[in-house]
């Protein structure tokens, strides 16, 4: 799920950045530092949308660095247990398949793939129904349900299932 929230961060800045462009420098550094990172609480920071305010800088003893408390608005993405997500399949093997929704890595075990879909090996491994009408292979888009999540410092892992109504392939790259 996406959230638009306000977060706070202390930015340490070298004195060489002080001057007319101080604010721009802080924002640029903030974007560089924060966008694309993960936090266990908020999930993946997709983009910074605005700066609420930049507080008074505090000179650190001994170094000359100044730390500014910055409040910023950002869009974060965090998967939840029970959430329905759309994801792109990245790898298919006999154990199941891996998919990605942005930075989120999702594994769907073959236990959680409908029983009528069977693994087919070959240079393009896939899961196919017996009549061949539905096929999951690399680059397929699937709709899946998250049943477990783990967010660590840089990555989000999820376990997903497509063994439920209205889940499974939503587009077929082979047909396109």
């Amino acid at each position: 799920m996406f959230f638009h929230i306000v977060l706070e961060r202390n930015m340490q800045l070298h004195p060489r950045h002080f001057g007319r462009n101080l604010r721009d420098n802080i924002v640029a550094k903030l974007m560089k530092d924060v966008e694309g990172t993960c936090s266990g609480r908020h999930g993946f920071v997709v983009a910074i949308t605005g700066i609420e305010n930049i507080g008074k800088g505090l000179i650190r003893d001994g170094t000359g660095f100044v730390s500014f408390p910055v409040k910023y608005q950002c869009v974060v993405f965090r998967p939840f247990k029970g959430e329905i997500l759309e994801a792109v399949v990245t790898m298919v093997n006999k154990m199941g398949f891996f998919a990605e929704a942005g930075p989120v890595q999702i594994f769907v075990s073959n236990h959680l793939i409908p029983d009528d879909m069977e693994f087919q090996s070959g240079d393009m491994p896939n899961y196919t129904t017996s009549d061949g009408s539905v096929k999951i292979q690399k680059d397929s888009e699937v709709r899946l349900k998250i049943i477990g999540t783990r967010v660590d410092a840089t990555e989000i892992f999820c376990i997903g299932t497509i063994k439920d109504d209205f889940l499974g392939v939503i587009n077929d790259p082979a047909a396109a």
Binding site: S109, I147, I159
Partner: peptide
Amino acid sequence: FGEMCILCG
């Protein structure tokens, strides 16, 4: 997978 059970999450 990532310290989660692949079956029950």
